[in-house]
Each structure stands twice: as C-alpha cells, then as structure tokens.
C-alpha cells in the first residue's frame, strides 16, 4: 500500500468566529494532478496553508505522507499566491531559487544544489536572467522565478496557489507542459478560481466553498461545480477553456 500525499479528516477552521473551512475530508493520492477550485473567499488558500502546516485547524486531522504537516515540509514545494517583498530587496534570481532548497542549520549548499537551481531556471525559461536582481524583472518573470523556487528541490507534493495569476499568456502553454512533465514524479495541487482554464489540464477537481462539494475526476465534476457557484456551468473537459464568470 502506498501512502497518500495528503489525508484530511473532518478539518474545520474558524477565523474571528467566521467559518472558513467546514468539515473537510480530502484525499490526495501520490501522483494526483488536482485543481482546487471555488469562488474567492472559499478557503482555497487556507486549505493549502493547512497542508503546509502554516495554519493549524481547529478540529480534525491532517497527514502529509503519513506525517504531521510541519514534519513533511522537506517533501513539499509551494508557490504562494503573492509574495510581498521589498521593492529593491538585495537578492538576485539565482539566490531566490536557491532559497527553495534547505538542508538545515549549519549546512551549506552543494554543487548539486547549484545545478538543480540552473535546471529549475531552464524549466521556466529564466536561465539567462540568473544574475538579475529580482526587482528588475516583470511581474510574469518574477512569477516564473517563484515557480522555479517551488520545484527546485523536486518535491513529492507541489502546491501552487493561483499559479496563472500573473503569468504572461504566451507562458501559459509552456507552464502546463512543465506541469505535465512533473506530474509523473509528484502530486500536484493547483488552486484556481478559473474553472474552465484549469479543467482541461488536470485529472481531478476539488470544489471548495467553505465545504468540499466534490472531489474526483474532472468528467463528473459538473454537479459539484454548480452547487459551489450556484449557477449552471458548461464544464468542458476537452476543448476551449470556459470561464465561470461569463455565465452571468
């Protein structure tokens, strides 16, 4: 029997008396390629942060590869929704990606780590910018650097919060190509509020709006989605991306 990447049982979380997540039961298998979709404020980012051990739920149990989330961090890669950093922070692209690798206190970086950084930068087509200060990049380029930072140590579970948010349109295809290359090696979880765009690429969908309305294969997701968004949806799993918002 193989370990599930994530197992959540009866997870609930309130913030200032307001329910953010209610009774979530979610299983993410070892090689799943899953999109968590749902409206803004539906608790998607919160769910990722619980998996990462950045937030502790009020009730319920989370296991990541059978361990406590905080003890499984060496197996996870993370792309945050946004990073607020100082406009002229003194760090270049290479060192930013290198900070995605960490071996522990008093343990420096090896030649292999540096090679991994170069490979990750090649994956996101940012190698030629490796010495550039991070503030001298465009928003889309910074996003690519952060993607490289998330994948550089080849995690077993890759968590990405709104990865498409600031990627330039021409980069989107190569981004999905990169993910399809990675998905044989790791479980990938994308958070998105853009159902159609994501549903043609992923294998599974989880519909989240405080409660988990559905999780399973994309083809059967229509009902869950309608419940989440409270409106009829044409879910196209093959073909042109559809946007939920256009239905209104």
């Amino acid at each position: 029997m193989t370990l599930n990447a994530v197992e959540m049982k009866n997870i609930s979380l309130k913030f200032n008396e307001q329910s953010i997540l209610h009774d979530i039961n979610l299983k993410i298998e070892e090689k799943d390629f899953m999109a968590i979709i749902g409206p803004n404020g539906g608790g998607k980012s919160t769910l990722l942060k619980i998996i990462l051990g950045l937030l502790t739920p009020d009730t319920g149990e989370v296991k990541v590869f059978g361990r406590e989330p905080k003890k499984a961090r060496d197996l996870m890669g993370y792309l945050p929704q946004s990073v607020s950093f100082d406009h002229d922070f003194p760090i270049n692209v290479f060192d930013t990606v290198l900070s995605g690798i960490y071996h522990g206190l008093f343990k420096g970086y090896s030649e292999n780590d540096r090679k991994a950084v170069i490979n990750a930068l090649k994956d996101v087509e940012m190698e030629k910018f490796k010495d550039r200060q991070i503030s001298r990049l465009s928003g889309g380029q910074i996003q690519r650097v952060f993607i490289a930072r998330a994948i550089v140590r080849e995690p077993k579970l890759l968590l990405m919060d709104e990865p498409m948010a600031s990627i330039d349109p021409e980069m989107q295809n190569s981004f999905y190509q990169l993910l399809s290359k990675l998905k044989d090696k790791m479980a990938i979880v994308l958070v998105s509020h853009d159902v159609g765009a994501v549903s043609i690429h992923v294998d599974k969908i989880a519909c989240l709006n405080q409660r988990l309305f559905y999780h399973g294969p994309v083809e059967d997701a229509k009902e869950g989605l309608e419940e989440v968004y409270n409106c009829p949806i044409d879910l196209i799993s093959h073909g042109i991306p559809h946007r939920v918002l256009k239905e209104h």
């Binding site: 990462l52 950045l54 961090r73 060496d74 996870m76 993370y78 945050p80 990073v83 950093f85 922070f89 760090i91 060192d95 930013t96 900070s99 995605g100 690798i101 960490y102 522990g104 206190l105 008093f106 420096g108 930072r149």
Partner: peptide, 23 residues
C-alpha cells in the same frame, strides 16, 4: 556568518522560509 542563509531567507519571505523547513 553562521546564519546568513537563514537571515536572508527570513528577511526576503518569512512564510516561505517556514515552508522550506527553517526554524
């Protein structure tokens, strides 16, 4: 000298420094 990696990562992106497993 001993903690330069940690100090830099913490200053740049505190949340991410936790995610990679820094105390």
């Amino acid at each position: 000298f001993l903690f330069q990696r940690e100090f830099l990562a913490l200053s740049f992106d505190e949340e991410f420094s936790k995610v990679v497993g820094m105390p």
